[in-house]
Design a protein around this nucleic acid. Structure first.
Ligand SMILES: [Mn+2]
Ligand SMILES: [Mn+2]
Ligand SMILES: [Mn+2]
Ligand SMILES: [Mn+2]
Lengths: 222, 222
DNA sequence: TTTATTTGTTAGCTTAGTCTAACTTATTAT
DNA sequence: ATAATAAGTTAGACTAAGCTAACAAATAAA
């Protein structure tokens, strides 16, 4: 049996190891807001349970088993977020903390029912992919809006590392997933973009915002 | 802050003290499936927190504060059960264990949303009353079906101490809340009743079942 | 290549929540 | 009224999950 705390560690390991495939204990402890020795001793326990691969002074990796468990928790988290938004009327900025708790509910029927009622969605309200029932996750590789140039037309597909503040900002600009953006101009000095879309014209987005918006080319414009 | 474990103790104290107003530690430990010393030490902790009133060798009582907290947890439990049945399509026999977990989710917005989507229900799927947002609970005092006599016509209002097995049995007899029952006859030896209702005629219900069905007089027949 | 800094480890302490064993108080039966 | 049984208490141990303090290893700076 994997405890709620252990589940949170697995999830943190999963998201932190997405690029490098491994995680330093200090990163992990920062992510989970615990001290380094706490994370250290948990790594020993998860090694015992064969959920992580870990040797002294080396970075931590998830085992295949650990990776699958983590993906299944993320599945529950993202299904929950989708359910809260689509079926209960919450805003996309309100759902993360609730999902952080509900992801630990022990009832496969509960999450299967959500999945069914939602019509088996493959992304959450922030555009992140929902792993399937076997823990397999298919990641689309979107570019950042900030990687594009003047005149590009792109579709807003996902928010990366979405904070509540960022999501509220996007609400205030009526920027929802699926919006097609046209880049009118880019300020050379600080990278601020002026973009137009159905709801707004010449809206200014700071480079900090543009870094978080994941997009794909629209109309054959990759 | 009240922990999940403490919440479960408060809830158990609430339901066990409904009649007598107080609870023996041994009853409590049985209900929660812990040993007597475990319940005993928890009572000390809840006394510290002023949630219960307790002196050595005397039965335990909930304080006003403890009673309110307990009622609010029961509110979340019953709203959840109602939501699972009404909005997610679960059967009334499937929801208790899930609600047992979800009742501890820390988000008033989550439960307020459920309440709203359900149209502020005042009973759960088993006919038990849902306490209001202030923890006030209004209990209807129904009689048991077994307290009635041949020829009585009654409405099925609630199931008392519903187990999954009992609820499945009622499913098999198509006996849902609101059904109007006519008592055709009662076997003097063991109290088995023969009842008729819209879906079935002369259905036999053992006295064990009749003890659990809470009813009120139908058509001015109190 | 030493030295300083960051990162990781170990040991030992804490709290919540559980247990068993031994004992005490209350209740019930003889 | 005394003995037997049940209920409640205390002490001591355990695990999970956290912490701090002291030390060791690895990495970065000088
Ligand atoms: Mn989230
Ligand atoms: Mn979580
Ligand atoms: Mn229930
Ligand atoms: Mn519970």
């Amino acid at each position: 049996m994997i405890s709620e705390t252990e589940e949170n560690y697995l999830k943190a390991l999963f998201v932190l190891s997405i690029d490098k495939g491994e995680v330093n204990i200090s990163e992990l402890s920062k992510q989970l807001e615990v001290k380094i020795p706490t994370a250290n001793s948990m790594m020993k326990r998860l090694t015992e349970k064969e959920l992580v691969i870990y040797e002294s002074y080396k970075p931590v990796k998830l085992s295949a088993k650990g990776k699958k468990e983590a993906a299944l928790i993320i599945r529950k988290h993202r299904l929950t977020e989708m359910f809260l938004v689509e079926k209960m009327g919450f805003g996309w900025e309100e759902v993360h903390l609730i999902a952080e708790q509900i992801e630990h509910i022990r009832s496969s029927a509960f999450f299967e029912k959500m999945d069914e009622l939602l019509g088996h969605p493959n992304v959450d309200p922030h555009g992140s992919p929902i792993p399937d029932i076997n823990g397999k996750i298919t990641t689309e590789h979107y570019l950042r809006l900030s990687d594009h140039k003047k005149g590009d037309k792109v579709e807003f597909m996902a928010v990366s590392h979405s904070s509540e503040d960022l999501l509220k900002f996007l609400n205030s600009k009526e920027l929802v997933l699926g919006t097609v953006l046209f880049i009118e101009s880019i300020e050379p000095f600080d990278g601020t973009m002026s973009v137009s879309y159905d709801k707004r014209q010449n809206e200014m987005l700071s480079s900090k915002v543009c870094d978080k918006l994941l997009v794909r080319g629209a109309e054959g414009n990759s």
